[in-house]
Design a protein around this nucleic acid. Structure first.
Lengths: 171, 171
DNA sequence: AACTTTACCTTGGTCGGCCAATGAATGGGT
DNA sequence: ACCCATTCATTGGCCGACCAAGGTAAAGTT
């Protein structure tokens, strides 16, 4: 009922209600989407799909880890990580082997082949960052980071499964 | 070669290189993901999946439109929209019919049934926005919107397929 | 009028990502 | 020792989103 007669929105509002009702939410979606596409382009040269680079970076960083490590670090669903790894394994970027210390766990590590990409990926990531922030002065960048962190906090709280700051000190 | 010997990263840096090399990029991914999950939860009650709500909002707003309209408004890939519509049609939220004026086009409109959700969806969207921005004062919110817009601009430029303000005078 | 380009949408395939449910191994209670 | 709860990982199903390619109809050219 609230619905305007189809033929009559001569006014043709440029702004969708979505943008009015939730400017930030809307902006976040759009930025994320564009950012992902940009990442995809930047990564096209290195045979990685957007999302995979973070996983690889973690492996390059920490060597052999078990899947749980990745799941917690990337904050992804277990099944997502499993599938990503299967694909990365098939493309030869990653190797998996059973953990001798725990027969239900799996150890994951980057292959030597993949290490060749390390530099390229970090360069791509860096240039992406630069591109993203073009035209923002240092103060603005800091502020953006701060605000995003706050928002993340909020959403994290809502989700209620946010990272209980990893014990870390570790064993 | 930068790779530390696997067994030796005793230091175990808490921050992944990704976060150091691209704090904002990293934050954007995370925030987007959390935001999407939150949206999913908020929408769970209304039988819509995250992403669909924006499409529906557009339909509620503008009545019957052709698919191209949606594609441009949501800035999505045509195939994405086609598939979303197929699903929305099957769940009875949307109806499609050929455009009498242009035999290759299709007109899409929200079903009456779906209109019942209109209010609920907007409420959900609004509360999501509020949740996202909890603890940010008005000035911060404004600033966040401004910064995100700038970033969007940047990424849009990169992508190079951003909405060339439809005027289309174009060529 | 005939031909070529352009626009509109669909299909098929691939990825990341989620949830729910399942199998295997570990660990804790009693 | 036994059983039950946890943890680790996988599978299957589904959705959003992309790209590439294809088919049909409308414009624009000649």
């Amino acid at each position: 009922m609230t619905r305007a007669t189809p033929a009559e929105d001569a006014c043709t509002n440029a702004l969708p209600t979505a943008a009015l009702g939730g400017p930030v939410s809307h902006a976040v979606s759009r930025v994320a989407r564009l950012h992902r596409i940009a990442a995809g382009k930047a990564l096209k040269g290195v045979d990685l799909y957007p999302g995979q680079e973070l996983l690889m970076m973690h492996l390059w960083d920490r060597g052999a880890v078990r899947q749980t490590e990745l799941i917690r670090a990337l904050e992804l669903d277990p099944s997502t990580v499993t599938k990503m790894l299967q694909r990365l394994e098939q493309t030869g970027h990653v190797r998996r082997r059973p953990d001798p210390a725990d027969r239900r766990a799996v150890l994951v590590e980057a292959t030597d082949q993949s290490c060749a990409l390390h530099t390229a990926v970090e360069a791509a990531w860096g240039s992406l960052e630069e591109h993203t922030l073009a035209g923002l002065d240092p103060a603005e960048r800091t502020e953006l980071v701060r605000l995003l962190a706050k928002v993340e906090e909020n959403l994290c709280r809502e989700t209620e499964d946010c990272p209980d700051r990893r014990g870390a000190a570790s064993a």
